[in-house]
């Protein structure tokens, strides 16, 4: 469902080249639930933006639902749902209900299907109480539920979430997690999320992608992650150990496994 082969992305900041992502390769099959972990600045959001077509990779090849995101962005948009924890995809000044109605029209979702889906989401995510509230007045947790609903109205095959549980209280967090778990189990929606909350990973994901300095540092199960620090019981400590180790390794060119094909050449 998601294929990344040797994907890289550089940014030029004041003449200095920053390798946000380099030589990243992984595959996610249909129906999987995958978490993307990594310290701040590792390149998780950049990866998500390339998978969704927002950013064009400087090198490598990406396929999501069979499409090249940067070339077929609008076609891809119909097949994937995207949630940014840090930023709403809804219209700030419109009531949630109008925002969702606009999403319905933009995605050309049938009115009847829309009503059914909205009822279902109201049930599962408890939206009923704030459908009439303008998005700007929603609390973070309410807004996140609205955003998740908006991302799923067109019943996408893939759902991509960048830090969906950021800033949520324990109860909201549990509800969102439970919702995502059921979405994946019952509808078979492929889910890829990034998070700094290891609780998300423990409760949801069979598979973890650890990104470090823009590279894939580990691709495996939670047990594989634990195996990196034998004897340590808490997953938090295991990850803390990995992140700390990543800080002490130099940021600039760690030896590439093969010549990195990045640079502005692949841009046009």
């Amino acid at each position: 469902m998601i294929e990344a082969d040797g994907v890289g992305r550089t940014f030029t900041v004041r003449r200095r080249v920053v390798h946000a992502v380099r030589d990243l390769s992984f595959r996610v099959a249909a129906g999987e639930f995958v978490a993307c972990l990594g310290p701040n600045g590792a390149g998780k959001s950049t990866t998500i933006k390339m998978l969704t077509g927002i950013l064009t990779p400087t090198s490598g090849r990406i396929r999501v639902a069979g499409l090249d995101p940067s070339r077929r962005r609008t076609a891809l948009a119909r097949r994937i749902g995207v949630v940014f924890g840090q930023r709403t995809t809804l219209w700030w000044d419109l009531p949630l209900r109008d925002s969702l109605e606009l999403v319905r029209l933009l995605y050309k979702v049938d009115r009847k299907v829309f009503r059914e889906r909205l009822d279902e989401m109201c049930d599962l995510l408890d939206l009923g109480g704030f459908l009439a509230t303008p998005v700007r007045q929603l609390s973070l947790g309410q807004r996140m539920r609205g955003d998740i609903t908006a991302a799923l109205l067109h019943d996408p095959a893939v759902l991509v979430l960048d830090e969906p549980t950021i800033g949520l209280d324990v109860v909201s967090k549990a509800e969102v997690r439970d919702f995502l778990r059921r979405l994946n189990a019952e509808r078979g929606t492929t889910v890829l999320l990034t998070t700094h909350d290891l609780g998300d990973v423990e409760r949801l994901c069979r598979r973890v992608l650890l990104i470090d300095h823009g590279r894939l540092a580990l691709d495996g199960t939670l047990d594989d992650l634990r195996a990196t620090a034998p004897g340590v019981t808490s997953i938090e400590e295991v990850v803390a150990g990995l992140y700390l180790r990543s800080r002490t390794t130099p940021r600039t060119p760690p030896p590439a496994p093969r010549p990195a094909p990045d640079g502005p050449s692949g841009r046009a």
């Binding site: 933006k49 119909r78 940014f84 930023r87 933009l106």
Partner: peptide, 13 residues
């Protein structure tokens, strides 16, 4: 403001 990111994930120009 980052709102262009949001516009780019919708199936409209």
């Amino acid at each position: 403001a980052g709102t262009l990111d949001v516009m780019l994930i919708r199936p409209v120009s």
